[in-house]
Simulated scan of single mutants.
Amino acid sequence: MQQFINAGQTTVSSLLLAHFHELGITNDEFLVYLELKSFYDAGNHFPDMATIAQRLRLSSTQVYQIIHRMIQKKILTIDTTQDKQGRSQDQYDFALMYRKLATYLSQQNRQVVEQKSSDQRQALFEQIETEFGRPLSPIEYETIAAWLDQDHYQADVIGLALREAVLNQAYSLKYMDRILLSWERKHLTTKQQIQREQEKRQQRQPSSGAAAQSSTEDIPQIPMYNWAEPDDDDKQ
């Protein structure tokens, strides 16, 4: 147990372990990386190649070839530094590999965000078509795309504007656009901000008496407020 403790540990990033193949690193190259890192963590930054070969059950020539490939792939460099006495010292450096991993992860995250945005866009188109009860025209597609790309309205905010338009039986993008502009003027840019504003408006509404409630029992519910007054053609 004491020998186990004294031997120390080599820590490897789980991200690197999961994605080293995507970086173009082979199994043999990754094993060499692990060996070099174990020595590096122990303070030996440039271990003898014969020692690495012995531990991996490979020849020194094979280890040399693997390291040469890693240098060609720009996942390993050999840097030369000077100690306090001015003597030159070589050391293995895997900074390029870590940068490659960071770049790969950044690209993956960007692709996920782009795919999510594309899915939200398609879902928004389908939601509006469902509520309007008809396919959207090419111009309407362009209008919605402009809301997303040029005005930078969030998809869920446009969804709230759609809900307000439907509640007011105004099935048009023109009406929705007036709602969105009204929210923008009030600096309401997120779904949460708009919902809080709606709650405040509802709380400011005067409470109805029992008689008034009884007299309006058979009246269909309508929105408690309008963000915009629809034109006659908005309700067509």
Rank of each mutant, 00 (worst) to 15 (best):
Q2F: 07
G8A: 04
L15H: 05
I25V: 15
D28K: 10
E29L: 05
L31V: 02
L31K: 08
V32Q: 01
E35P: 00
L36W: 06
Y40E: 08
H45Y: 07
P47N: 09
D48R: 10
D48L: 08
M70Y: 11
K73Y: 10
I75F: 09
L76G: 07
T77R: 07
T77W: 03
D79H: 11
Q85H: 14
G86A: 14
G86D: 12
R87T: 12
Q89K: 15
D90V: 05
A95H: 09
A95W: 03
A95R: 08
T103F: 12
R110N: 11
V112M: 10
S117A: 12
A123E: 14
E126A: 14
E131Q: 14
F132V: 03
G133M: 05
Y141R: 13
T143Q: 11
W147E: 00
I158S: 05
L160D: 07
L160H: 04
L162S: 08
A165E: 02
A165F: 04
R178Q: 14
L180R: 04
R185C: 01
H187N: 08
Q195C: 04
K200Y: 01
A211V: 15
Q213T: 09
P220A: 15
Q221K: 12
Q221I: 10
Q221T: 10
I222R: 13
Y225I: 11
A228I: 03
